[in-house]
Simulated scan of single mutants.
Amino acid sequence: MHAQDRRQAILDTLRRSGGPVSASALAEQFSVSRQIIVGDIALLRAAGAEISATPRGYVILPATTGLTRQVACQHDAAGMEAELNTMVDNGCTVVDVIVEHPVYGQLTGPLQLSNRYDVAQFLSRCAQSEARPLSALTEGIHLHTLSCSDEAAFNRVREALRALGVLLED
Rank of each mutant, 00 (worst) to 15 (best):
M1L: 09
Q4L: 01
A9T: 04
A9P: 07
D12M: 03
L14N: 01
S17A: 11
G18D: 14
P20A: 12
P20T: 08
V21K: 00
A23S: 10
S24A: 11
A25C: 14
L26K: 02
A27Y: 03
F30V: 00
F30Y: 00
F30T: 00
Q35A: 08
Q35R: 12
Q35E: 07
I36L: 14
I37N: 02
V38A: 09
G39E: 03
D40M: 00
I41S: 02
I41D: 02
A42G: 08
A42Y: 15
L43W: 09
L43V: 15
L44M: 02
L44V: 01
S52R: 12
R56E: 09
Y58T: 00
I60N: 02
I60L: 01
L61H: 03
A63M: 06
L67I: 15
T68P: 05
A77E: 07
A77G: 11
A78F: 10
M80D: 02
L84T: 00
T86C: 02
T86E: 01
M87K: 11
M87V: 14
V88W: 02
D89M: 03
C92A: 12
V97M: 13
V97R: 06
E100Q: 15
E100R: 09
H101W: 10
Q106A: 10
L107F: 12
P110C: 14
L111P: 03
L111K: 01
Q112A: 14
Q112T: 15
Q112D: 09
R116S: 11
R116P: 13
Y117N: 15
V119T: 06
A120L: 07
F122C: 11
S124V: 14
S124R: 05
C126D: 05
A127R: 01
A131E: 06
R132Y: 15
L134G: 11
A136F: 09
A136T: 14
T138R: 05
T138K: 05
E139F: 13
H142K: 07
L143C: 12
T145G: 14
T145A: 04
T145Y: 04
L146P: 08
S147R: 08
S147T: 14
D150F: 02
D150A: 04
D150L: 03
E151F: 04
E151C: 08
A152R: 09
A153I: 04
A153P: 05
R156W: 02
E159I: 00
A163N: 15
V166K: 02
